[in-house]
Amino acid sequence: MKHTITIEYCPRCGWMLRAAWMAQEMLTTFQQELRSVTLVPSETGGAYKIWVDDVLIFDRQQNAGFPEIKILKQRVRDHINPQKTLGHADR
């Protein structure tokens, strides 16, 4: 089963490039497991949320900031393929 990641970002906050970078990292790391990564401009100011399939795995407002890419990759991996090694990102 291929998975979908959705990144909702606030365009007024200037977070599109961050969302695009995180999308690139996800596509590179999870090439075999992903069907798509979708960027969604939010209508809610300050929003930055990430879903894997329909499961919310990150919310900037709940987590009081942005995740390190290492942490985000681990959360995605834990949801889509817990046996996958992430190399240096697992250390």
Rank of each mutant, 00 (worst) to 15 (best):
L56M: 11
A47F: 11
A47T: 09
F30M: 10
T38Q: 12
R35I: 06
V55I: 11
R60P: 02
E33N: 10
I57R: 05
A23P: 06
W21G: 10
T44H: 08
Q62L: 08
K49A: 08
Q62W: 04
F66L: 03
A23E: 12
S36P: 09
W51E: 06
V52M: 10
Q62E: 07
P41Q: 03
E43W: 13
T44L: 15
E33K: 04
G45K: 13
V55F: 12
D59Y: 00
F30Q: 05
D59K: 06
G65K: 05
I50A: 09
A64G: 05
D54K: 13
M22A: 13
F58N: 02
P67N: 02
P41K: 01
P41C: 05
R60K: 10
D59A: 05
Q31D: 14
P41W: 01
F58L: 03
L34N: 07
Q24I: 07
G46H: 04
A64S: 07
S36G: 12
R35D: 09
I57L: 08
P67A: 01
T38I: 13
Q31T: 11
V37P: 07
F66K: 00
L34D: 06
E25H: 15
W21Q: 14
F66P: 00
V37H: 05
L34K: 03
Q62K: 13
M22G: 04
V55S: 12
